[in-house]
Design a protein around this nucleic acid. Structure first.
Length: 288
DNA sequence: GTGCGTCAAGACACA
DNA sequence: TGTGTCTTGACGCAC
């Protein structure tokens, strides 16, 4: 089992800085600083037995934007290779997660086109690093019903270049598409399913978490990825916890096995350190 | 150094 | 048709 966290290490440096659109001239500097920080973060993570990481979509801000003129694929190549070397050498598992505006199955052609450009940026970034790594998105729109939404997803998936199709994975969401709906996507595309425990608790077809994990396991060739978070007490439903609840996480680890776990918790590396300690205590990962 | 108005983008519920 | 919410800050200007 590998444990990871999202985007940036708050105690180290910022790997997810961005700029505003009218300051695109700053992108090069920010991208450079993000990648330097990403490298430091990955090295820090390895020292702390954190071997799973979600790279920020902001790494190269506005990379897929039509106004972008900076040739990041060329200019950042050297640094991307350096980061990739760390990832390969230390066998770090990598994911990325484009935001809510990436809607592959939108009814609107221009939204689909810009979504594909955004996905290509993610795939190219990982290609240039020379690493494996999955790009995780939600099914998206449910206009016309879920069946229709899945149909559009499968149809648009076939438009994607191969280097992207091989990296795409789909995640159950907290409002519309359940794990079983994602299985329909898998049947049409063959892409694996990332199970999110909090979304599953809010939106499911009656399966326990353990049953849901059994369902998605068959969509992966190797170890499945899972997203883990817990509900922030007293907050609106779906709000991620500010820090890891040790009790909740122990209960979670009692149920799951043979998965890699991405923590979606606001205090990031602080919770990851706690999670690694707990997982070691429960013999879910070996101590070094 | 701090406060706060604003930020690229989609989808959907609701008035 | 317009507005608010999701989510979640963080940029960056004004002071």
């Amino acid at each position: 089992m590998k444990i990871g966290y999202v985007s940036t290490n708050r105690s180290l440096c910022k790997a997810d800085s961005t700029v505003k659109l009218d300051h695109l001239e700053r992108v090069k500097g920010v991208a450079n600083s993000n990648l330097e920080c990403l490298k430091r973060t990955l090295e820090w993570n390895v020292e702390h037995d954190i071997l799973f990481f979600r790279i920020s979509s902001n790494t190269i801000p506005f990379a897929s934007h039509p106004k972008m003129t900076f040739d990041w694929r060329k200019e950042m190549r050297g640094l991307l290779e350096e980061v990739g070397e760390v990832i390969r050498e230390k066998s770090i598992r990598i994911s990325m997660h484009p935001g809510q505006y990436t809607v592959l199955n939108s009814e609107r052609g221009e939204v689909v086109r810009s979504s594909i450009e955004e996905l290509k940026y993610h795939a190219d970034l990982l290609d240039l690093m020379g690493v494996e790594g999955k790009i995780q998105i939600h099914v998206g729109s449910s206009k016309g019903g879920k069946e229709e939404g899945v149909r559009r997803f499968v149809e648009n998936f076939s438009l994607l270049p191969e280097n992207l199709r091989n990296r795409l994975v789909v995640e159950n969401d907290d409002r519309v598409y359940t794990v079983r709906d994602c299985l329909e996507v898998w049947r049409g595309t063959g892409i694996p399913i990332v199970l999110d425990n909090l979304h599953h608790s809010l939106n499911n077809d009656g399966e326990s978490l353990e049953e849901a994990l059994d369902l998605v396991r068959g969509t992966w060739r190797g170890t499945p990825m899972m997203d883990y978070s817990s509900q922030e007490p007293g907050e609106r439903r779906g709000v991620h916890a500010s820090t890891l609840s040790e009790t909740d996480f122990r209960d979670f680890l009692k149920v799951v096995k043979d998965v890699d776990v991405m923590l979606e918790i606001k205090d990031k590396e602080a919770s990851a350190l706690k999670a690694v300690r707990i997982a070691k205590e429960m013999n879910k990962i070996k101590s070094f």
